[in-house]
């Protein structure tokens, strides 16, 4: 038996539980202020003040901040997404609709999920996206061509994709650029444009 197989079998035999549990529960979202190391919704908490209670950076020392890392975006569109941060992994959107998971400490990319919206999408003010929502291990994103996607937060695989009915078509200039919001077991998203 190969060494690799042995190492992993020990893992399984030892009953090391595979954590299939949800990473982010709706209670976590409700109490987001209690985990300031994370950023679980677009505006931080349901209070939507976008204020972090982390205390390492202060008005006094802010002038000493220096560059920690750079991640090169492969798009010339504007960045308008506020990244989510969950247990050290940062999730953001490279415009228009490419989702990226980075190591928040170093900026290194774990995975990239590319979605190319229809070239006929017509957003009023640039091919932008404002970000994601997360529940469990699932990320949610609305796209410029009015699709709504669920993506596995660990691997970047598409879980499902839907075209909500009763919304005006992207061909008429409607799009999803807003970051969705999870409330309990529902995801709220709205389209804009026209």
């Amino acid at each position: 038996m190969t060494k690799l197989l042995k190492v992993l079998l020990v893992w399984f035999a030892a009953g090391v539980s595979v954590q299939l549990g949800a990473q982010v529960t709706s209670d976590d979202l409700l109490n987001a202020a209690k985990e300031p190391q994370n950023w679980l919704t677009y505006s931080g908490t349901y209070m939507s003040q976008r204020y972090s209670t982390l205390s390492q950076i202060t008005p006094e020392n802010v002038k000493n901040l220096s560059l920690a890392w750079v991640w090169q975006n492969r798009s010339l569109e504007l960045f308008e997404a506020t990244p989510l941060v969950v247990n050290g992994v940062m999730y953001t959107v490279q415009p228009p609709n490419t989702v990226v998971a980075l190591d928040a400490k170093t900026g290194r990319v774990y995975w990239t999920y590319e979605y190319d919206p229809s070239p006929n999408s017509r957003a009023c003010c640039g091919w932008v996206n404002r970000g994601l929502a997360i529940l469990g291990n699932t990320l949610f994103m609305g796209t410029l061509d009015q699709r709504f996607l669920a993506i596995d937060a660990k691997t970047g695989h598409l879980l499902w994709s839907t075209q909500p009915e009763d919304v005006p078509s992207f061909e008429r200039g409607y799009s999803y650029t807003v970051a969705p919001l999870v409330v309990k077991d529902k995801v709220i998203v709205s389209s804009a444009g026209g």
Binding site: F12, Q19, L20, G88, V89, D103, T106, Y110, K154
Partner: peptide, 9 residues
């Protein structure tokens, strides 16, 4: 990704 599905860098 380790066997507990944690992403490590």
């Amino acid at each position: 990704m380790d066997p507990s599905e944690t992403l490590l860098s």
